[in-house]
């Protein structure tokens, strides 16, 4: 059966580490990184990338428009 898989790209220098995308993600894909960006914010990243479905929920709640979402279908 074809499986839908997603991936997000976070613009880490624009991210303010607000955590809203992390709680909005239904698959626990995201977390705040232990490292910080140049402004000192713990930026969001895919901690569990294999979970992402590309649902765009994270991008919907991001106040800083720094999430880009991709989605693809795979046969396995």
């Amino acid at each position: 059966m074809a499986k839908v898989r997603g991936a997000v790209v976070v613009d880490t220098e624009v991210c303010k580490g607000c955590n809203l995308c992390v709680v909005a993600c239904p698959t626990q894909t995201l977390a705040l990184n232990r490292n910080v960006n140049n402004k000192g914010y713990h930026y969001s990243y895919m901690e569990n990338p294999e979970n992402c479905t590309g649902c765009t929920n994270c991008a919907a709640v991001c106040p800083d428009s720094c999430i880009t979402v991709y989605r693809a279908k795979f046969e396995n």
Partner: peptide, 24 residues
């Protein structure tokens, strides 16, 4: 797998071009 997914043809959400690049 991530590399395979992150391709222009798989894009489902990107920042609107009506927003400019200034950091809020």
């Amino acid at each position: 797998r991530i590399k395979e997914i992150i391709k222009p043809e798989n894009l489902v959400y990107a920042k609107s071009p009506v927003l400019n690049d200034d950091i809020m």
